[in-house]
């Protein structure tokens, strides 16, 4: 590195706080999964992202015998799904989603699982990009899943069920609405990583570094690199 080492660069306090909150969230009980199970999902997602010899999209950890941290706490279907979402999300299809349901993952549990994986990918993505060691996941918060789910219905714009009324919001917004606490976590991360929700319509908004147009440029390049059609 040049004169300024990355390790000496301060990280914005709001970003540190949002990431710490995300880590607390993914290791706490949710609606369908315990904190132990959610932490195991995050561990598997991070292991998938760290994997220097990743499995191809058509293979899975449980089929191939690839050891995954925390896998003993989860159904095989969840282990495989978490790995694939973390590592090969662009290859997922509606048929694949329906296969996960056939393997026994409840739709509410699936959506919550997606929320855990995307939060793990966010925190990992920052530290990987900036070249610093990722903070460890915190200890688990004990407790049973609360079991409270919103009223949902099938959507035209997503494979997953969404909170009623469906298709009144963009697909990416309603995608986690069956697990509202996961969407809340995504929103609080996005406010620190990208643009606060109440500033979203202000195209001149900036933290003083990247302009909004620069942010959209980075977003577009990253989305293309991840082959995300949406």
């Amino acid at each position: 590195m040049p004169a300024t080492e990355v390790s000496e660069i301060p990280i914005r306090p709001d970003l540190v706080a949002a990431q710490a909150e995300a880590w607390r969230h993914v290791t706490s009980p949710g609606a369908s999964w315990t904190g132990d199970e959610r932490r195991a999902m995050a561990q598997i997602a991070l292991a998938a992202l760290d994997d220097t010899e990743p499995l191809p999209p058509w293979a899975s950890p449980t089929q191939t015998g690839r050891a995954m941290p925390g896998a003993e706490l989860l159904p095989d279907a969840a282990v495989d799904a978490v790995y694939l979402i973390a590592r090969h999300a662009a290859t997922l299809t509606g048929d694949w989603y329906r296969t996960q349901l056939a393997r026994g993952i409840d739709p509410f549990a699936y959506v919550e699982m997606v929320g855990v994986v995307v939060a793990a990918a966010a925190v990992d993505g920052f530290f990987r990009s900036v070249g610093l060691e990722r903070p460890a996941l915190p200890p688990v918060v004990a407790g049973a899943p609360h079991g409270h789910h919103p009223e949902v219905e099938a959507a035209e714009l997503n494979w997953v069920p969404v909170a009623v009324p469906a298709d009144q919001q963009a697909a990416v917004v309603q995608g986690l609405s069956a697990a509202p606490a996961e969407w809340d976590n995504v929103k609080q991360l996005a406010a620190a990583q990208y643009v606060p929700v109440d500033e979203m319509g202000e195209l001149a908004w900036s933290r003083g570094t990247l302009s909004r147009a620069d942010m959209e440029f980075v977003a577009a390049r990253l989305s293309a690199a991840r082959e995300c059609f949406y």
Partner: peptide
């Protein structure tokens, strides 16, 4: 941070 956001959103 923006990269992280879109690792999440994609």
């Amino acid at each position: 941070a923006v990269v992280a956001n879109f690792e999440m959103m994609t």
